[in-house]
Design a protein around this nucleic acid. Sequence first.
DNA 1: GCTACATTGTGCCCGCGTGCGCAATCACAA
DNA 2: TTGTGATTGCGCACGCGGGCACAATGTAGC
Lengths: 212, 212
Amino acid sequence: MPIAIPEVVIDRLPVYARALALLERQGRDVVSSQELGEQLGVTPAQIRKDLSYFGRFGKQGRGYNVGRLLAELRQILGLTRDWSMVLVGVGRLGRAIVGYAGFAPQGYRIVAVFDSDPAIVGSDVDGLIVKPVDALESALRDQQVDIGIVAVPGANAQEVIDKLVAAGVKAILNYAPIAAQVPPDVHVKDIDPVLALQSMTFYVKDQTTAAK
Amino acid sequence: MPIAIPEVVIDRLPVYARALALLERQGRDVVSSQELGEQLGVTPAQIRKDLSYFGRFGKQGRGYNVGRLLAELRQILGLTRDWSMVLVGVGRLGRAIVGYAGFAPQGYRIVAVFDSDPAIVGSDVDGLIVKPVDALESALRDQQVDIGIVAVPGANAQEVIDKLVAAGVKAILNYAPIAAQVPPDVHVKDIDPVLALQSMTFYVKDQTTAAK
DNA sequence: GCTACATTGTGCCCGCGTGCGCAATCACAA
DNA sequence: TTGTGATTGCGCACGCGGGCACAATGTAGC
């Protein structure tokens, strides 16, 4: 059990879970690592190896029971409970995040929103009253919050992240364009479409011009 | 020159470029790999090794000229020109993407938007008239388009991606919750906050409950 | 029940990316 | 000029993740 599990493995598990949920909705009850791998663009051996870190969920000659494996993965990833999140930064991006329909079905709820702009504080965003960032720490003392979402301009992001960390938040979803500095026990995932675009353009920069 | 450059290296270059742009705005004219590494949470050796794939940009005893290195990276990544993009899927998410202020400053422009819903087609979104998805291929023949953005529900995403690929698009930014199937010469980057959250909860699932 | 077939779980090896360590090199001061 | 200090570029070795290949094991058919 004290065997360290590579982070890349953990990153793949939600992808497996997502594919299994789709298969379940389609009424499938068993699936092989072969078939799952083809759908996801991963080798079957990779899937089996990843799963073997956590147990033996398959049956030789058959494959994996879809519902069973999905339940196991949800258990492993902690998806069996709901997670409460706070959002900091209620600009255009922040409002879009509050309105994003993809969180709720997976059990992720935004329970409070904060902003530093006095003109925005007090206004209503999808049923939530915007609170001042100064109230962040006291608000996090009152209610249990698991995850922080940062959607402020890059210049203020580190400062906001520091406040979240000080308030005891251990998981941060960062939309700001900075490389956040956090202690080792805090987990940060960056969402930055611009970085994604900039790395893709490296590969296509010659082709597209030549195709003209 | 025919040395293959690892994809992880390419993924880091935009991060370096972003940090250098910030340093330049702050008026700095030289920076060492040491200092840059501390800001980004990367080892100095990693930065030097990454850059050495493309040339020798530093000076011993000094470090890197900020403006010079930034210009080189922009050249390497293809950031010296503008890129035109089409968006498919004008729901809540799609509209947020059109309104996202982060693209334009980096030279990424959305030049056309498409949707399959007849109720949406024809409406105006931030100055762009929504066109039907059927018009996708012909529209891409008329104007040069480099990148496709997919913001449709998962069930329709693969179909839309197929159309983009058929139209010759080589770079796709995918917001849909699916693992897209594309030919090897097409590049896909996924943006999925839910996957990011689900992999983080693995690490904090015990701590948070215990902290109660 | 026995045989044929399919698929898992895992030991092992290979390759690649990461980081160390040092020689080469540049700036700057004396 | 010459010496000192700092930092780069890169050869090399290590470690880790990925995938192969096979034994183990379950299923299904006869």
